[in-house]
Design a protein around this nucleic acid. Sequence first.
DNA 1: AATGTGAGCAACCGCAGGCTG
DNA 2: ACAGCCTGCGGTTGCTCACAT
Length: 257
Amino acid sequence: MVRAPCCEKMGLKKGPWSPEEDEILISYIQRNGHGNWRALPKQAGLLRCGKSCRLRWMNYLSPDIKRGNFTKEEEDTIIHLHEKFGNRWSAIASRLPGRTDNEIKNIWHTHLKKRLKNYQPPQNSKGHYKKINSDFSTSIQHEINSFVHTPNSPQISTTEISTVTDDSLSVIIPVTTDNRIMIKLEEIMDSLEYFTEMQESLWTDEFAMNNDISNFVTMASEEFQSLDMFNTTMEDDMDFLFNFFIRTEDLQELPEL
DNA sequence: AATGTGAGCAACCGCAGGCTG
DNA sequence: ACAGCCTGCGGTTGCTCACAT
């Protein structure tokens, strides 16, 4: 395959964009859209290659782009998603409205990598959850009982059990009046990639603010059903999710919000 | 005031993969 | 099936600016 000549050989401009060039590109795209990037610069009267135009539009000029510094929440989200997706910046960007892959990549290399370097994960972090292999409901009830009656759980002010049961699933989650449990729930949901979209639609600040786990679980349950997640390929992962249990000692390790 | 240095970020480069004729 | 075109992605570069010396 013959590679197209580079911009310089074609006599096209490289380097930073001038305000005039930006103006030409914006007004052209506003009038005509950007169907064919390769043809665009010629039609718009720009001495740039299509690739450069596309990059400038996608990373800087598009009205969809959110300008300004990243919030703490956005940074946390990036760290979270990076754990899940690695350096798949576009996948991360698609979950952060208004942010570009380039921007996320930059912030990762300049800020977040350093931030993580200073962060020491808790010991035995792999043992956050206990998987219950046999007789799910009996085992989990046993765990819940010991959880509820553990005397040295001072950080958990009150506890109740929220259960959603129907033909195909049973979710049992200890509920605390503070927000710590919410972090664990989020981690569980995050651990399964294909729940991402569902999580985004369900995981709202409102739930976190109101600590409304019963409602969350109900909605999650309905969502699982509607997504038809109980057949074939996802079966193992569903089992994996519903066999999670949150251990008392892990709750006590969680940082204050 | 001049120079050095490092951080931040916009832009470039090369490649992969999808699409089309 | 194949070649060429186009787009999108991730790694990298290099410019700019702020701060230190």
